[in-house]
């Protein structure tokens, strides 16, 4: 009896410890499987990031977790409720900033907030006070009566963040929150996201294809590629997956002649599309002389050597053989242009 009670207590504790629990989640679009059986847990109060290139299945996962899509297999519990069995309960407890802009461009910032608040059941002075508080938080109060179509991309994003916070969600989903914004504005948005967590002690689920964003904001990161989570951990833990340092070597060889180098101090080796050789080593300063020795022994002429501490991009490269930015950049630009066109 006490044993089973203990077990129950443990279960209750687990229930309260996690904001999101996902088990073997599968989502298919016809023949295409966008999410291929992923499992992960997000602790209460943490910022958890999905990092991966476009088409990795990040947005699809967010849409399943926010009850917009039904999973084909698996289970997802968000804020203590199953997304398939109790979608309305889930909806009550979450907020979301979509990847694509979703404000009413014809309406003012205030009207956008007002409509959102009413849909979530707020009204009167309570709603007014909430709108003012949130618009002040994102520093848009002075622009509250301006139609959103006159807002810059960063201002629109801030408005969407304010709107998503209006009903005080337990879990906030941010799908590529700084996509298409300039570096300064991105840094600004990051400040809000950090402040949000501090002030509202909420759980934040973030998707991004920017490594620096994941690194800046997230407590834990899941790297996603082709519908699967290929690694998960803190930024430091992920970086430890490869050696400590990364060395890039350019050699005086035709592209076809370049081969990987082998030695006990080299932990990993890969040939880059631009012809450079990328080496994972424990310590670049110590490895460099050994590298020159090795090159001389093999009759190779080194033209250029650079090294740096590993980034999440190196981790992604190490795991997949591709860079996060490889795919999609052009596609994304094209999509942004399309979007801009459609608005006219």
């Amino acid at each position: 009896m006490p044993r089973s009670l203990e077990k129950i207590m443990e279960l209750i504790k687990m229930e309260t410890e996690y904001a999101i629990e996902v088990e073997n989640l599968v989502k298919k679009y016809g023949d295409f499987t966008a999410v291929k059986g992923i499992s992960f847990k997000v602790k209460k109060g943490e910022i958890f990031a999905f990092l991966g290139p476009n088409g990795a299945g990040k947005t699809t996962t967010v849409h399943v977790l926010t009850t917009l899509l039904r999973p084909n297999e698996g289970r997802a519990v968000v804020a203590g409720h199953d997304v398939v069995k109790e979608p309305v309960e889930v909806r009550r407890k979450i907020g979301i900033v979509f990847q694509d802009p979703s404000t009413d461009r014809e309406l003012t910032a205030y009207e956008n907030m007002y409509i959102h608040g009413r849909i979530y059941g707020y009204s009167g002075d309570e709603l007014k006070a909430k709108i003012e508080k949130m618009l002040r938080f994102v520093e848009l109060w002075e622009f509250k009566d301006r139609p959103v179509k006159f807002f810059s991309g960063g201002m629109q994003r801030r408005l969407e963040i304010a709107r998503s916070l209006l009903h005080e969600p337990e879990i906030l989903f941010l799908d590529e929150p700084t996509i298409g914004l300039d570096p300064q504005t991105r840094a600004h948005i990051w400040e809000y996201i950090k402040a949000m967590r501090e002030e509202h002690s909420m759980t934040i689920f973030l998707t991004t294809h920017y490594m620096d964003e994941a690194e800046q904001l997230a407590d834990r990161i899941a790297i996603m590629d082709h519908g699967k989570i290929i690694a998960e951990g803190t930024a430091d833990e992920l970086k430890k997956l490869i050696g400590n340092d990364v060395i890039y070597v350019r050699m005086d060889e035709p592209k076809e002649g370049i081969k990987c180098l082998n030695a006990e101090f080299i932990r990993g080796c890969r040939i880059m599309p631009d012809g450079r050789v990328r080496l994972d080593v424990q310590n670049a300063a110590e490895a460099m002389p050994k590298l020159f020795e090795l090159a001389q022994k093999n009759g190779l002429k080194i033209l250029e050597v650079t090294y740096h501490r590993p980034t999440l991009n190196d981790v992604f490269l190490h795991l997949t053989g591709r860079e996060i930015r490889d795919e999609g950049r052009e596609r994304k630009v094209a999509r942004m242009i399309m979007r801009a066109r459609m608005r006219r």
Binding site: T66, L68, V88, S102, G121, R343
Partner: peptide
């Protein structure tokens, strides 16, 4: 639908019929 307002409604705990 294209500019996301529908999604706003769909993720809200609101009656879709009413909307």
């Amino acid at each position: 639908k294209q500019f996301g307002f529908i999604k706003e409604i769909l993720v809200a705990p609101a009656s879709r019929e009413e909307a």
